[in-house]
Design a protein around this nucleic acid. Sequence first.
DNA 1: AATTCGGGGCA
DNA 2: TGCCCAGAATT
Length: 389
Amino acid sequence: MKPLASLFPFNGEIFFFILNWQSDYNVKTDSPELIVFAPTLETWYEQHRRDLPWRNTTDPYRIWLSEVILQQTRVAQGLPYYLRFTETYPTLPDLARADERELLRLWQGLGYYSRARNLHQTAKFIANTLNGHFPTTYHDLLDLKGIGTYTAAAVASFAFGERVPVVDGNVYRVLARVFGIEEDITTSQAKKTFAALAIRLMAHAIDPATYNQSIMEFGAIQCTPVAPNCLFCPLQQQCRAYLTGRQQLLPVKKKKAPVRDRYLTYFVFRKGAGEAMQLALRERTGRDVWQNLYEFYGTETDEPASDWRSVDVPDEVNELVMQGVLVGPAIAEQQLLSHQRIRAVFYEISIPETSNVVLPKDLNWYFMDQVRRLPKPVLIATFVEKQFG
DNA sequence: AATTCGGGGCA
DNA sequence: TGCCCAGAATT
């Protein structure tokens, strides 16, 4: 019944663990904080639990349904949907027979619509291929479409009593605070850390299902994201976050920068031809992407620039433009960064050799061999290669 | 390992 | 507005 992973709480301690091997599975080497954690929450849960419909059943179908609905969804938002779904599709065969458009219509407003499609697909799979036999273990549940580590653990423990810990957003928050874990929870490394700790804590639970419910309920109504109720917290005196006043700082979560569209217009000033050709480049300064890399003279606009003439440039640059000749059509390039989508348009402008106009400040002429050696954004390098390579 | 996928509630 | 929510699939 106990997952093998329980025997290997933390990688670095396996050797130590073997030395302390008692006859049967045990975690006698765990500290008091680790041992008391689960039972404390289980006791708290019996006193504070909300009465929610999916907590009054052990029907794996209904538990699974509730868990899928509640993925990245608050209880208050998911509850009416759960009631409507169980009304319309009381059993798994009912869901398997459902018309998908109807099902999606019922799902409307919940978001993440692939959840609904996977739900239907898996219902049909269980009803038809598995002859209605709902998978009963964490391992087998993981194979189903739309069921990941969290949902597999939830169904396995709630419906079948398996001793596997759930690790969801609540668990991250509670564990990060109580045990003072500073790892960025958005990384996959942190996911391993929390999962390992969760397994270790689960080993001390009196009842796996109750403990899993308790830690999530605890995160939802006691150890809340903002303003946790530390004053009346049963773990107050062993909570690293509380004892160090870091409740608001944990869990550490890198906020993802929204993907931002940026529009650049470059003026590619060119002089001469062949290997004697020179391009005008400048170093990009400022705390921004491409800091200290070389690029052409360019300007950024909030919206796509319709034409190079619509772009505002300093007088000295405009003077340079007027001295030259626009060569060929504008060339558009795009570069995707993790948090930005940069769309650039290049205008090549040939400056007569005879021109004695001075380059604007910061801009300098570079021969092609120099150009190739200068560090440039991929966007610029790609352009140079295509155009002059 | 990073990105994408929704929509609602709340400070 | 930005953050967060009983995450999983995809790239």
